[in-house]
Design a protein around this nucleic acid. Structure first.
Lengths: 148, 148
DNA sequence: TATTGTTATACTCTATAACTATA
DNA sequence: TATAGTTATAGAGTATAACAATA
């Protein structure tokens, strides 16, 4: 019966939303305890793992308008976590680059973030996590594909 | 090796976040196309399925401070989707109750919402959805338990 | 002309605190 | 005293549009 399958999809949406919300409440609290909001953490994490990035690119990755990026980068620069570096070959472009201080901060923060996630997800066995990863990856990718 | 299991947990977090984000972008767009934000939809959906609720209770379910609830309820009342009804036995209490117009609106909206979710999740078979529901439920509940 | 980033501005949502009225 | 809801206010985060510099 079609209606039951629709209900099943709704159920999937609900449990997905709830699990995500429950985890986010914990991680966001962790970010906040460390003086960051989720957007700021996302920017720092990007620079920490992927190296310096043009502001434009940061905006497109994090889905933020250019004016908003300026605001976020300003805040992180004022705190000394990153610096603006101009691109010599195209003087329209400005990179954001994590500072030593910012990297040191993330050296501390990121493992704690990982550890928190590990503890938050320890109700699932390693096999169950693999299962969940496989299913969620398939789901997430298929939806992304629909957007184009 | 412990570090690999930590990476696995991080991976789970990432795919969970991405799947959730991908779905939410679609559902939020759908809400917006219908003049609602996610909070407003959540309130209407609650009243539509659970009947009238004291404002206080709506706030605790949706995790919103009392002043913010007043703001949201005001907006929905102005649009004619709900009315305030005072409680005769305890005159401090005000219920929010969906109107005929609000119910009619949701009679249209909710099946479309379900249908959208069904289409968004159709990359997974019914068996895979059951698997995912089981795993996400287990995960979500275990995190909720940790909060107490 | 198109693109990058900044500035100025406004808006939405939420929180907080002081308040009123009931219990 | 405690609770329900309102009012007034403030703040964070984001978007938009106009702009300057550069390509």
């Amino acid at each position: 019966m079609a209606s039951e399958e629709v209900k099943q999809s709704l159920k999937l949406f609900i449990v997905l939303s709830r699990a995500n919300k429950a985890i986010n409440e914990c991680t966001n609290q962790f970010f906040q305890d460390n003086g960051l909001n989720p957007t700021e953490f996302a920017v720092l994490e990007l620079l920490y793992h992927k190296g310096r990035q043009p502001l434009q690119k940061i905006g497109s990755k994090i889905l933020l308008a250019s004016g908003s990026i300026t605001y976020v980068i300003d805040k992180l620069e004022k705190r000394g976590y990153l610096v603006r570096v101009s691109c010599p070959s195209d003087r329209r472009i400005t990179y954001a680059e994590i500072t030593d201080e910012g990297a040191k901060f993330m050296d501390e923060l990121f493992p704690k973030h990982e550890q928190q996630l590990h503890e938050l997800t320890n109700a699932l066995s390693s096999e169950e996590k693999d299962q969940a990863i496989k299913l969620l990856k398939k789901l997430g990718l298929s939806i992304k594909d629909l957007s184009y």
